[in-house]
Design a protein around this nucleic acid. Structure first.
Length: 935
RNA sequence: GCCCGGAUGGUGGAAUCGGUAGACACGCAGGACUUAAAAUCCUGUGACCAUUGCGGUCGUGUGGGUUCAAGUCCCACUCCGGGUACCA
């Protein structure tokens, strides 16, 4: 009876599905544990071996926790809105829902083969109306909310309106855009005079029209509509969030992105900056992810300083080095800065206009690529708040309009960019440091002592910072200020395949569709493209209106549905709420979240944001979604290459490729075994190779070259799990993916070792056989056998507790090898081992468990406990070292005292030899560890 | 540039608290079985020296340090991977 994995796995796959073995129900008598995988986007390509790496690890952990008696929630679903299905729809006219459906079916088929313990009755799909109904509902929640800086909480907009009714804006401390009233005065229909600075009375409020009130409230809402500078991607026909852009081009497709002002929905995530940073300390995430988030949010502490310029213009700058204020020799404004126009003198007008026009033309990417220093003098001056000196005002595109105030105070002595700018335009470089040489570069150390700085002389950064801020406060010219890089997130996409907004427009006023009327379903359209007039695809739909009023035509971005899906798994079929209070309370935070690190600034930040909103508004009792997270590394492909001699159809083996001028071409990895090419297979692979000739190596083989790259169809290096499961079985695949190394690590896929792992499962299976039939003995196990069992229990338990999945496989192999040597087939020994192995090889474990005579599933067995009485060894093998070098071994009773050990060692024959006649200076004895004789 | 990781045999990796470096597996070599091959099993396998046996020296990217003892801690550097950037 060989290890017939095909039949075993097929049998148990069916049985588990029939019995709904993995269905979990809320059970208040059991402790819960929530293990979650980042749900996949169901792409047309299906799964390759890299995808299940994290799924397998989390599945093993989920099964382990189940053995430990926890009620484990381990669900799976699909992030099924997205661009590829839409682009396919544009090309073929096929509805994205249909493509998505097909892809999901394929994913499911692949996932089922691997033996995951998912409770599929809880599956969610972000593109199903039943699901996005609640995504729309959450959008409504954010629309009907504002951020109160007083309590540092999201609060319902109705509370804000009540405050306005009572006392106007007085006493309201809301998170809003800086200088929001300036835009408001320019763009909204309002009742205020030009002197309005954001403050209004209850009388003002009450005198406003409905439309005026709404326009004002829009500045407070957490989800708001505003003209904002967005990243517009013409090729994709949509806006992109900052995290969807890499190196100035779109992450998907690598298309050019430009800045454009558009009326868009945005999310006030910037209000949560501080909490998003400080709450990182409360969660157990990999340090690098926390670090990426910290950098992305970009907190910097500094000061705002105001410079009084000509023509009643005040220029406010943000600086992290207010201590260097006396070193200011000019100011630089971003080309888009609002004061550029006013400050520019007649003489400089042409130069400035040209510069501003030029920088507008450049894309973000071009600006970044251009390392050249550029700028132009406005002709205007501003007064230094402390010295009263007139400093020239320049513009330069190294200053970004979107960060800080869009203006900087230039201190060439203390900042390298200012230094370079000053050198380039021959501007003054004031040395404000006591001992710094500024002939080559700026002094950026915070420890440098200040000079030529009036009352700051002799201080370093730390002392001067407070001193100068205090002075600025006194004279009203500035104050301490914390600045964040994080911008509000644009929430509109000009796409079809996304959640429609539950919004319609009544005389231009956005109105929210009530919960009872949700979901707002995606309408059918005749094509998945923008309209001729450039409106989003939804504008093509007939009847895309509500009682004659137009509906919002944008859809939500990909991250909307994924920002809360972990909550829906708790209660996926609830029609009246997104998840019941009871269930949310029971399941709580995700205890273990497994997924890729590439979502660090997108999904992982947005779900934290929405979680905080739901927490503030009292819908969930926790303010962080994922208590612990582990990032699995990427599995890379190992591409194979053949070398074609130039202008011929002759291929030369890797070793000899230098003999000719060759062209390197991909060969499908299925045609290559151990870097040797299957020549016949290669010829029939592609028509162009049918008549290929080969120049072989000295062993008459064709050797391929190789390189480690990302897995991709175009590189012919994709390994699907299906082939491996067919060849070796799911249990082998599971064990092998874990055996490859630490999950966090990225590594190239290599099937070389898989036979070793498969072999191990066969050897394990063989332990239960005698003369080819299943047979276990009921004899009492020996001490040696029991030691193997309990040593293994201890090792595996400890390894799983520290998430060291790979070493568990080794431990199982060692146990199998040892028991094979001991020729042990005793039930007492084998039963606990089946339980230990079951998280890794669930099919085989179930089969063996059944054969052992059990009628219940092994997955519900309790986890074995390592008992010390079996682990205690009588003797300990001491390594005896002399000056740190191990020389011989000595087996001594484990309980022997240090003094006795020392005596034994000194009395030993070999000791005299290694002492070489010297007398030991010192003898270190660490009981049950080591002896070191120092000479 | 800045921030965060990492570097261990031919290969993937192990070494959890500073205590026998190289577990486990692959690969390779030799052997058994076989007409042969595959499969399976056994033995060996860090490098160098010695080899009849005993053994010896070196060895965890490089250089230094702390310690009875360093892959592990400290300092400096090199290379590789990831993140991020005219962020004031």
């Amino acid at each position: 009876m060989e290890y017939d994995f095909r039949n075993i796995e097929a049998y148990w796959r069916k049985k588990w599905a029939q019995d709904e073995s993995y269905k979990v129900t809320e059970d208040p008598n059991k402790k819960k544990f929530y293990v979650l995988d980042m749900f996949p986007y169901p792409s047309g390509a299906g799964l390759h071996v890299g995808h299940p790496l994290g799924y397998i690890a989390s599945d093993i952990y989920a099964r382990y926790m189940r053995h430990k008696g926890y009620n484990v929630l381990h669900p799976m679903g699909y992030d099924s809105f997205g661009l590829p299905a839409e682009q396919y729809a544009i090309l073929t006219g096929q509805h994205p829902a249909k493509t998505t459906e097909q892809n999901i079916a394929r994913y499911r088929e692949q996932l089922d083969k691997i033996g995951f313990s998912y409770d599929w009755s809880r599956e969610v799909r972000t593109s199903s109306p039943e699901y996005y109904k609640w995504t729309q509902w959450i959008f409504g929640l954010l629309f009907n909310a504002w951020y109160d800086l007083e309590t540092n909480k999201t609060r319902p907009i109705s509370e804000l309106i009540a405050k306005f009714e009572e006392n106007g804006s007085y006493g309201v401390n809301a998170h809003m855009d800086e200088d929001w009233w300036k835009t408001y005065l320019l763009e909204a229909d309002h009742i205020f005079s030009a002197h309005f600075e954001g403050e209004f009375t209850d009388t003002d409020w009450k005198s406003m029209s409905e439309a005026q009130k709404e326009a004002l409230l829009m500045n407070y809402r957490v989800s708001y509509l505003a003209d904002s500078l967005v990243n517009w991607c013409t090729a994709l026909g949509t806006v992109l969030a900052n995290d969807e852009i890499k190196d100035g081009v779109s992450e998907r497709g690598g298309h050019a992105v430009e800045q454009k002002k558009m009326r868009q929905w945005s999310m006030r995530i910037s209000a949560y900056s501080e909490r998003l940073i400080s709450d990182l300390d409360t969660i157990d995430w990999p340090d690098n992810i926390k670090e990426i988030q910290r950098n992305w949010i970009g907190k910097s502490s500094g000061a705002r300083v105001r410079f009084q310029a000509e023509k009643e213009v005040t220029i406010e700058v943000f600086t992290t080095r207010p201590d260097t204020l006396y070193g200011v020799s000019f100011l630089t404004l971003a080309p888009e800065h609002e004061s550029v126009e006013v400050l520019t003198t007649e003489e400089q007008r042409d130069a400035v206009s040209e510069y501003v026009a030029n920088s507008k033309l450049k894309t973000e990417r071009e600006r970044m690529a251009e390392k050249k220093i550029s700028g132009v003098f406005t002709g205007g001056y501003a007064q230094h708040p402390l010295t009263g000196d007139q400093v020239p005002v320049w513009i330069g595109d190294y200053v970004l309009a979107g960060y800080g105030t869009g203006a900087v105070m230039a201190v060439p002595a203390g900042d390298q960019r200012d230094y370079d700018f000053a050198k380039h335009f021959n501007l003054e470089i004031k040395n404000i440091f006591a001992e710094s040489d500024l002939s080559e570069k700026a002094e950026t150390s915070k420890d440098a002592l200040l000079a030529n700085s009036d009352f700051l002389n002799g201080m370093n950064y730390y002392a001067a910072f407070d001193a100068v801020c205090e002075r600025l406060m006194e004279i009203g010219a500035g104050e301490k200020r914390v600045n964040y890089r994080l911008r509000d997130a644009v929430f509109s996409r000009q796409r079809y395949w996304g959640e429609p907004f539950p919004i319609y427009y009544e005389n231009g006023i956005p109105r929210l569709i009530e919960t009872e009327e949700l979901p707002t379903q995606l309408p059918d359209v005749d094509a998945y493209l923008p309209t001729e007039s450039g409106e989003p695809p939804l504008a093509r739909a007939t009847n895309w209106e509500r009682n004659g009023m137009p509906m919002e035509c944008n859809t939500m971005p990909g991250w909307a549905g994924s920002s809360w899906y972990f909550l829906r798994y708790m209660d996926p079929n609830n029609h009246s709420v997104f998840a019941s209070e009871e269930r949310i309370k029971y399941w709580g935070q995700v205890d273990l979240y497994m997924g890729g690190a590439e979502h660090a600034t997108g999904h992982l930040l947005y779900s934290r944001f929405w979680t905080k909103v739901l927490f503030d508004l009292g819908y969930i009792p926790f303010n962080e979604p994922f208590k612990k997270m582990i990032n699995q590394g990427m599995i890379l492909g190992r591409s194979s290459f053949v070398y074609r001699i130039k202008d011929s159809n002759t291929f030369i083996s890797f070793e000899r490729r230098k003999e000719f001028e060759t062209q390197r071409l991909y060969a499908d990895i299925s045609l290559v075994d151990n870097d040797k090419l299957n020549i016949e297979g290669f010829k029939s692979w592609l028509p162009e190779y049918a008549n290929a000739e080969f120049m072989l190596n000295e062993n008459s083989e064709y050797t391929c070259g190789w390189e480690v790259e990302k897995m991709s169809k175009s590189k012919y290096n994709v390994q699907t799990p299906d082939e491996l499961i067919e060849k070796f079985g799911a249990d082998t695949l599971r064990c092998y993916e874990m055996f490859l190394g630490p999950v966090e690590q990225s590594k190239p896929w290599d099937t070389k070792g898989i036979s070793g792992v498969h072999n191990f499962l066969r050897r394990f299976h063989r332990l239960f056989l005698e003369n080819e039939t299943f047979s276990v003995s009921s004899e009492e196990a020996t001490a040696a056998e029991m030691r193997v069992v309990h040593k293994t229990i201890k090792k595996i338990t400890e390894d799983l507790e520290r998430f060291s999945w790979n070493t568990v496989v080794s431990a199982c192999m060692i146990a199998t090898n040892e028991l094979t040597d001991l020729k042990c087939n005793k039930r007492q020994v084998l039963e606990p081992l089946v339980v230990l192995l079951s998280p890794y090889a669930p099919h085989l474990a179930e089969e063996l468990w059944k054969n052992l005579g059990h009628s219940t599933s092994v997955m519900n067995e309790s986890w074995p406990i390592a008992e010390n009485k079996y682990l205690e060894e009588e003797n300990f093998e001491y390594a005896i070292s002399f000056n740190g070098k191990t020389r011989f071994f000595l087996s001594l009773p484990a309980g022997m005292s240090a003094a006795d050990v020392e005596a034994e060692v000194m009395a030993h024959d070999s000791t005299a030899k290694y002492l070489e006649g010297k007398s030991p200076k010192k003898i270190i004895v660490v009981p049950k560890r080591i002896v070191n004789v120092v000479m």
